[in-house]
Design a binder for these strands. Structure first.
Lengths: 359, 359
DNA sequence: GAGAACGGTTCCGTAGGACCG
DNA sequence: ACGGTCCTACGGAACCGTTCT
């Protein structure tokens, strides 16, 4: 029919090739593949046979161009490996995959510029929706996104209070949970091993700390300044922090750590200096990573629904694809996992409660 | 010029819009953007101005269709969250991003069927290259891939001995490394906490074990059958395995664990039963996860270049895009990290070597 | 079933200026 | 000063493979 026989081996079969072989038009083939119920049994057979023989498979680019939909969802992720964002991605992927969507992944190293370039690049590739993780300059991102009015987007781990399209946690409440637990166990003087709270969008750290402080005030717990250290999240940073706290000789009976990474490092630092956990100092943290239940001692920690954030985001984005849902924000629930790293004050033995609820 | 003024707000600007505004042809605009050196200073200015004003950004689908290249690399990953594949992905992403490529991610739950559907779907989307992680049915994958002769592909964590396009490790050698260490420290009777080794492509587990056994024979170390358990990788599985080993009362002085996950669980199980590590039983494992140095005790483990596998794969795939490199396989080097979970036999105190080399 | 989008890229051709003898 | 050649910058149009009217 046309001149595509010039190279019979090279190019993969196209719709036209199938149509020619089956003796129908390209439109018919297209419909046979996408809405087979509209095609008569007989021609469908013929078309399918041709498809088989030629090993035809749709060209995603052409399809995306014609449909103005790529069936692709972009995820721009800052600090991929250094935190538990991988789990969020897993949640995202598993849910969008169910609807035939695929994740397009970008993990730029944030410097106030490349992350936005990455976002723009993602958009240029024609993603149908976009998920942002760990962004600190949300306004700037919104700027870019506003140029694509039809593209749903979600800000994961964002500030649920500070604008729309956020899937996040009530960090102040999380702070309450942790502090109430140490207060319940009789601790009256505590320290903090925390992330940084300064900067435009250190939202999570800051609000979680605010929650801790508010609860402390209410419960009559004193947060000893000299036993507070602000650092980056990480095992080693936790270890160093522990030594700093110890050096301050404040006599606090408990330490709140902003993440399990910090907590594990902190506990290690404590133990290296002969301080027992929880007999001498109790530790409560946030996250509930996969390893947290298997530490020595197992970590008492505020379980954050990490994977669920990804899944929720997926549903939100997917629904925004069809109907025009207004901007919405979701706050997910955290819950305390009581294990062994936090004991009642003035006791020499670890509290054994919650041993069977380990997960 | 044409009728695209019907909806002045809706559609994003196209190349034609820019061309119209700048008073040039679409070809010129395209060239201005991709090969500016071919365009005269004066018209380039005009074009760029129009691009600015209209907020023009290329349509990825159209570009992919015209160029027959999507600048996208597919990654099909089995068991995303349950292992350290996230790190491999990170390595992959970081390297392909440098060349302007983006990762398309798919993480099907393997059931012998959906994973291949996922692979096929990825190919249909028009990825330029493809990375496979954790595939067990490589032949079947090759079947599908062979229908796309131009698409470079790599099998990560594959068997470097068993065919091409593999980026992997010499697992037998890794087994040697671990066993030699326990042998050097005087252990003569040891047990194994291992993954399953049966099945078509349990290559890694099997060969690593074969390496251990060969080295054991050479060094006169006895692997006590009753102290060997095969299970899935995971903290909890390790804990259970420890109890099984203990129940067998074999008197082994060291345990080799197939991963740090298993090791952490195993140590936990040991400790819960009053067995000290390494004083009573030593543990050596494989992986060197981020948490491994901060366990109690810190894990002596065979460091696997996880991220590097991803990076190497990226380079391999990228180079296969331009030139036609033949099928090649790479084996990366592992190395022992000596920490505190494995001590010399017949000593009551932990060995302190390697304390300063903690990473 | 025919044919027009969809939005780029790239090949091909040509107008016009520079340069040469 | 003039005709021819080369080169550069650009316009025109075919083409990529689907979908939808």
């Amino acid at each position: 029919m046309n001149q595509n026989a010039r190279t019979s081996v090279a190019r993969p079969a196209s719709l036209a090739d199938v149509a020619a072989m089956a003796g129908v038009s390209t439109g018919t083939v297209s419909r046979t593949l996408s809405r087979p119920e509209m095609i008569s049994e007989e021609t469908r057979q013929r078309v399918m046979l041709a498809v088989q023989k030629l090993g035809y498979v749709v060209n995603g680019a052409a399809r995306a161009l014609a449909m103005r939909r790529s069936h692709t969802i972009g995820a721009v992720i800052l600090k991929f490996g250094s935190s538990n964002f991988a789990q969020v991605v897993e949640g995202l992927e598993s849910e969008v995959a169910k609807k035939g969507y695929t994740l397009l992944l970008s993990a730029p190293v944030p410097d106030g510029k490349t992350e936005f370039a990455a976002l723009a690049a993602m958009l240029a590739r024609g993603v149908d929706a976009i998920a942002l993780l760990g962004f600190e300059g949300l306004e700037q991102a919104s700027d870019i996104l506003s140029r694509y009015p039809g593209i749903p987007h979600a800000h994961l781990w964002g500030n649920p209070l500070g604008g729309g399209h956020c899937i996040g946690l009530d960090e102040a409440h999380n702070g309450h949970i942790a502090l109430n637990h140490v207060a319940d166990l009789g601790h009256r003087e505590i320290g903090l091993v925390w992330g940084h709270v300064q900067g435009p969008l250190r939202y999570r750290s800051r609000h979680r700390m605010l929650g801790v402080k508010a609860a402390a005030k209410k419960r009559g717990v004193r947060i000893v300044d000299a036993a507070c250290v602000h650092t980056e999240h990480g095992f080693e940073q936790g270890r160093i922090a522990a030594e700093q706290v110890l050096a301050a000789r404040t006599g606090v009976t408990a330490l709140l750590c902003a993440s399990d990474y910090l907590a594990v490092g902190t506990i290690r630092g404590l133990q290296q200096n002969g301080v027992r956990v929880p007999e001498d100092i109790s530790v409560v943290s946030f996250n509930d990573n996969d390893f947290s239940a298997y530490m020595n001692p197992p970590l008492t920690t505020v379980h954050l629904p990490i994977r669920e954030v990804g899944m929720k985001a997926a549903h939100y984005l997917l629904s925004g694809l069809d109907e025009d849902v207004g901007e919405d924000t979701y706050v997910l629930e955290a819950s305390l996992k009581v294990r062994d790293s936090c004991a009642a004050v003035e006791t020499e033995k670890p509290v054994v409660r919650g041993r069977k609820k380990r997960v």
